[in-house]
Structures are given as C-alpha cells and as structure tokens.
Design a protein around this nucleic acid. Structure first.
Length: 252
RNA sequence: ACCAUAAAUACG
C-alpha cells in the first residue's frame, strides 16, 4: 500500500497532475486486494484539486465518507473550499465551511484565506462586501489570526473593485498589526491601480516597494506593462521593459 | 508514503 500511495503522491506533486493516472494506480491497488487509506485519498484529492476538478474532488470526498477513512481534518475541508473557489463556486465553498463546523472541525486561517479567495473569484458584484463579512467572522473565531495572505487577498479584492480608500485602510491596518506587506501585496495593489488606469500611482507604489527592498517579479512588471498598454503609452511600456531587464527579471 | 491558502499575461 505504501508503494502505491507513493506513486499516487508522486502524481499529485507533479507539474501536471492527471487524475486518471492516479485513479489507474488506485485500481491496481484494489486488484491486489488492498484498500486505500487516508493517505491514498488525500493524494487523490490533491490530484483533483491541483488539476482543478471540482466534481471529482467531491466524488473523492463522498468515497472517503463511504469507506470511513478516519476523521476529516481541516486541511481536507480547506482543499474542498479551494477547489470550489477555483471553479468560481462561492455558494458551495460556504456550504463546505458550514459543514466542517457542523462536524466539529474548526476552520483555520488558511481556511478563511481560501474562502476569501473564493469570494474574489466568485465574480459577483458584491464580492468585496462578502469578503469583508468573512473577515468579520474570522475575527470572531478563536485562534484565527489574519496573516499577510489574508490581507493581500482582501486588498486584491477591494482593489479590483476600485475601492482604493478601503484598500489603503487595510494596508494601514495590517501594518498596525505588525504584518509587513510583501511582494504579492504590492503587486496586487499595483495591478489594481493599473487596471483602473492610474499608472502614475502604480509606478509610485513600485518605487515604494523597491525602497523597502521588496523585489518585484515578473508578475509585478506584467501588471505595469499591462497598465501602459491600457493607456496606449508605448514609451512607458518600453521603459518598464528596460527597468525589468535592469532588475534581472527575464521577460516571458 | 501524502497533506490545505494570495498576485500578472494579448487576441478570441
């Protein structure tokens, strides 16, 4: 069983996880008269999630219930929330959240972060407000301390909504809590400003991040190039490309 | 032996 589990885990961890291959190995295991355990199913679940297959993830969850593979942990529920978020199924993500609570499993920071991402990807006009509500629930949950990912996700959501005042309030709030914005936080804000057409403010933030010795990456520069493109500012686009090469970031 | 969360990317 360990051999088979190792194989399935290898597929789960590969660059392009294929659920069919993982299932094929699971079939082998069954033919040998073996029964999958928690590790087998966690690896299958990881494969489904990493290849973005929501329905399959839930099928695996149902199988786990049927076979009674021990108790479900917070990671498993969080994985399900993540896969719902990837598919833009916000309602379903909340259902998983409710279910884990009814089963006595406490959500963690990671669980709430996954829910926040699901809000962002939910493509709803009120996703910012829902995300702020999730943040409130999180604050009322014991042992759940928001981290840099929590704030980066919220900042990203509000920024895409053009709610820059609130975005800046969140930035101040995270700093007050002793959390330092990182390259993702900055890239999210830069991306939001570029989308809204405020390239100047985006460039200003770019300089701020460099002053703080936070290294921009290909994502950061892609946001800026996109901002220049939206403004049809070819000079600026070329300037950013130069800047990027100068910083040792290779254009893709 | 496995193990959960955040950011960019034209055209269509």
């Amino acid at each position: 069983l360990v051999t088979y589990n190792t194989l399935i885990s290898g597929i789960a961890a590969s660059d392009a996880p294929e659920l069919e291959r993982a299932r094929g190995i699971e079939n082998h295991l069954k033919k040998m008269g073996l029964t999958g355990n928690e590790v087998t199913y966690n690896a299958l679940m990881a494969t489904a999630t990493r290849s973005g297959q929501v329905e399959e993830a839930f099928v695996i969850y149902e199988e786990m219930k049927k076979i009674n593979v021990g108790s479900f942990n917070v990671e498993l529920f969080t994985t399900l929330i993540t896969v719902c978020g990837q598919a833009g199924q916000l309602e379903r993500a909340f259902q998983v959240h409710d279910r884990m609570i009814s089963e006595g499993v406490n959500p963690s920071v990671v669980t709430f972060n996954a829910l926040l991402t699901a809000c962002r990807r939910g493509n709803r006009p009120d996703s910012s407000d829902i995300a702020l509500d999730v943040m409130k629930i999180m604050r009322d949950t014991p042992d759940c301390v928001p981290d840099v990912i929590t704030y980066s996700t919220l900042i990203d959501t509000l920024g895409r909504d053009g709610r820059f005042t609130e975005m800046n309030d969140l930035l101040a709030e995270m700093k007050d809590l002793g959390l330092s914005p990182n390259f993702v936080t900055y890239t999210s804000m830069i991306g939001a400003l570029c989308k809204s057409g405020d390239l100047d403010a985006a460039i200003q933030l770019f300089h701020e991040m460099e002053e703080k010795k936070i290294e921009p990456n290909i994502y950061t520069f892609s946001c800026l190039v996109g901002g220049a493109r939206r403004k049809k500012d070819i000079q600026m686009a070329i300037f950013i490309l130069k800047l990027m090469k100068d910083r040792g970031v290779v254009p893709n």
